[in-house]
Design a protein around this nucleic acid. Structure first.
Length: 476
RNA sequence: GGCCCGGUCGCCUAGUGGUCUAGGGCGUCUCCCUUUCAAGGAGAAGGUCACGGGUUCGAAUCCCGUCCGGGCUACCA
C-alpha cells in the first residue's frame, strides 16, 4: 500500500510557522516512503475565510521548497480538494449516519444552547449538550428536518472506551462517557471538522494522519465516526506543538509567526526548514545541519518528541549564518537581488559578497553592511577622532593616509593595506588607532566589513574624497 | 471545573536499567586569532534529569502519587 499523507489547513489566515512544521513532517514522511502528499483546503468555516490564506500557503511552501502531489490547483484522482466543493458528500454521509441510527437531527436554537450552558455553569456541572433532540421520534425528526433549521449530531454511546496507538504518544484512551454528542453537520449545510476530516481522509485514502497535538482531544469523536461508517482508523501521529516563549501555543502575540514575515525579514528558507525540523525532532547523533534532502533521509517519525518546543529566534538566526556560508557567492547574490535597492550596482554588490557573507544571518543585513558603497556618508567629528588622540592629530594622520593612498600605483586591498601600515609605522601609531578614523571617514561607522577591502570596493576617487571631507570636518 | 497530553542546563535536545562524575547545539562568559564586526579555534559557567515514594544489587530510564505546564472543552479549525 502506498503511503498517502495530507496537510489540511483552514484558510483563515496566512501560513503559520507552526503549520509549516507539521506540513514539513508530513512532507518528509511522504518523501521517505515514496508516498504522496495531498493538500486539502478545509474551508468549512465560511465566516472566517481569509482571501490571503491560499496564496500565502502556495507562496510560502514553494519558497521553502516543500512540494506536494495533489491539491486544488494541481488536481488529482481524489478531488475536489476543497471542502466547500464537497458538500454533497458530507450531506450524504451525515444522512447515512442518521439512517443507521448513529446520528440524529437536532433543532435546538443557539439561544437554548447558550442558556443550557449558562445553567450548567451556574450549577458547576459539565457543560455539554443534554441530548434533548435525541429523544425525538426519528420519523418526526425527519419530517421536521425537511422544513426547520437543524444540525446533525453524533450519537455517542453512554459507556465504553476508545483508544489509539499514537505514533508519537503511544496508547491513548478515552471513556466515552466523557464525550458529548458532537455536531457533525452544521445548520448552514457545511460539515464540522470532525465529519469532514473523517470522510475526506477515508475517501482520499489517507494512510497516515500526522497533525498537531491540538487535535488529540478530538480523536475519540473521529473514532466513533469511523466506526459508524465501518471504516478502518488509519495510524495517527500527533506531533508536539510549537510554543511561544511563555509556553503557550505560538501565536501572533508572540511576534512574527507568518512565513511571509520571516521571508521579509530576510531569513533563508534553508535555515527555516533546518531549524523547524529540529523543534520536536532530533536525529540521535550530533549532526544538526540538514538540508531538506538530508531530512528526507534521516528524519524518523519514531524520533519525534512528545513535549512541545519553544520557538527560539536566536537559534534560527544561527542556522541562518550557517546556511549563509554554505550558499555559493553567486547564489547569495541572486538571493540578495530582491532585498537590495534596485539602483545599487549589482556588480559592486557581487564584489562585496565575500566580505559580507560571513557577517550575515539574514539577507536584510546586507543593506547596512554595504550601504556605504552606495550612499554618501557624513561622519561627525567626535566619531572620527582616534583613540587617545586630539582632533588635530587625527586630521594630520588622515591627511597622510590620504596622500599615501593617492600615490598608490594600483588600488587593490593589498596595496591599501601596505600603504596604511606604512602610515601607522611612520606615525608610531597602533594600526587599529589609525584604521578606526579611516574606517569612520570612509564608511561612516565603526563596524563593518574589513577596511582594506572596503576601501578597494569604494574605489580610489570616492575613498579619497571621503577622507578629505573627514579632514575638513576635523579641521572645522 | 472536566477530559487528554507533557515535564533532562535559560532555549532546542541526546539518553529506553549499569559505559551518566548526564553528551551535543543555541545563548552567555573568558582567552586566542585580528584593522572594527563577524567567522574560526580553545576553554568556562550552567542540569540534585519537576517533586515524593516505591521496584531493583543498581533508575533520567520501570511503577504509583503529587505538583507544575499545555491542549481541548463552539453549529472554529
Amino acid at each position: 500500500m502506498t503511503v498517502r499523507v495530507r496537510f489540511a489547513p483552514s484558510p483563515t489566515g496566512e501560513l503559520h510557522i507552526g503549520s509549516v512544521r507539521t506540513i514539513l513532517y508530513n512532507y518528509l514522511f511522504a518523501k521517505q516512503n515514496g508516498g504522496a502528499l495531498v493538500l486539502r483546503i478545509e474551508d468549512t468555516d465560511q465566516a472566517r475565510l481569509d482571501p490571503r490564506a491560499l496564496p500565502s500557503i502556495y507562496d510560502g511552501l514553494h519558497w521553502l521548497g516543500i512540494g506536494w502531489d495533489e491539491g486544488p490547483r494541481e488536481g488529482g484522482p481524489y478531488g475536489p480538494y476543497v471542502q466547500s466543493e464537497r458538500l454533497p458528500l458530507y450531506r450524504e454521509h451525515a444522512q447515512r449516519l442518521v439512517d443507521q441510527g448513529d446520528a440524529y437531527f437536532c433543532f435546538c436554537s443557539k439561544e437554548r444552547l447558550d442558556q443550557l450552558r449558562a445553567q450548567q455553569q451556574a450549577r458547576k456541572e459539565l457543560t455539554r449538550y443534554d441530548r434533548f433532540c435525541r429523544r425525538i421520534e426519528p420519523a418526526l425528526a425527519a419530517e421536521r428536518a425537511a422544513r426547520d433549521p437543524h444540525v446533525v449530531r453524533l450519537k455517542v454511546p453512554d459507556a465504553g472506551v476508545v483508544a489509539i496507538d499514537d505514533l508519537v504518544h503511544g496508547k491513548v484512551e478515552w471513556q466515552l462517557a466523557t464525550i458529548e454528542d458532537q455536531v457533525l453537520l452544521k445548520s448552514d449545510g457545511f460539515p464540522t471538522y470532525h465529519l469532514a476530516v473523517v470522510v475526506d481522509d477515508h475517501l482520499m485514502e489517507v494512510t497516515h494522519i500526522i497533525r498537531g497535538e491540538e487535535w488529540l482531544a478530538s480523536v475519540p469523536k473521529h473514532i466513533l465516526v469511523y466506526r459508524a461508517f465501518g471504516w478502518d482508523v488509519p495510524p495517527m501521529a500527533h506531533v508536539p506543538l510549537v510554543l511561544g516563549p511563555d509556553g503557550k501555543k505560538l501565536s501572533k502575540r508572540h511576534g512574527a509567526t507568518r512565513v511571509t514575515e520571516f521571508r521579509e525579514q530576510g531569513h533563508l528558507p534553508e535555515a527555516l526548514v533546518n531549524y523547524l525540523a529540529l523543534v520536536g525532532w532530533a536525529p540521535g547523533t550530533e549532526d544538526e545541519v540538514f538540508s531538506l534532502d538530508d531530512l528526507i533521509a534521516r528524519w524518523r517519525i519514531e524520533q519525534v518528541q512528545k513535549a512541545g518546543g519553544k520557538w527560539d529566534v536566536e537559534r534560527l538566526r544561527w542556522f541562518g549564518g550557517v546556511w549563509m556560508r554554505r550558499l555559493s557567492e553567486d547564489e547569495l547574490a541572486r538571493r540578495l537581488d530582491g532585498v537590495l535597492p534596485p539602483e545599487w550596482d549589482r556588480s559592486v554588490v557581487r564584489a562585496a559578497i565575500p566580505v559580507i557573507r560571513e557577517r550575515m544571518e539574514v539577507l536584510t543585513q546586507a543593506r547596512d553592511l554595504i550601504a556605504f558603497l552606495f550612499t554618501d556618508v557624513a561622519p561627525e567629528a567626535p566619531l572620527l577622532v582616534a583613540k587617545k588622540r586630539t582632533a588635530e592629530e587625527t586630521r594630520a594622520a588622515l591627511a597622510r593616509a590620504t596622500s599615501a593612498l593617492g600615490a598608490l600605483p594600483a588600488f587593490g586591498h593589498a596595496q591599501v593595506e601596505d600603504a596604511l601600515k606604512a602610515v601607522a609605522m611612520d606615525l608610531g601609531w597602533k594600526q587599529g588607532d589609525l584604521n578606526m578614523p579611516v574606517r569612520v571617514a570612509v564608511t561612516g561607522t565603526k563596524v563593518g566589513p574589513p577596511l582594506y577591502e572596503s576601501i578597494e570596493l569604494l574605489g580610489r576617487e570616492r575613498a579619497l574624497a571621503r577622507l578629505e571631507r573627514a579632514e575638513t570636518v576635523l579641521a572645522g
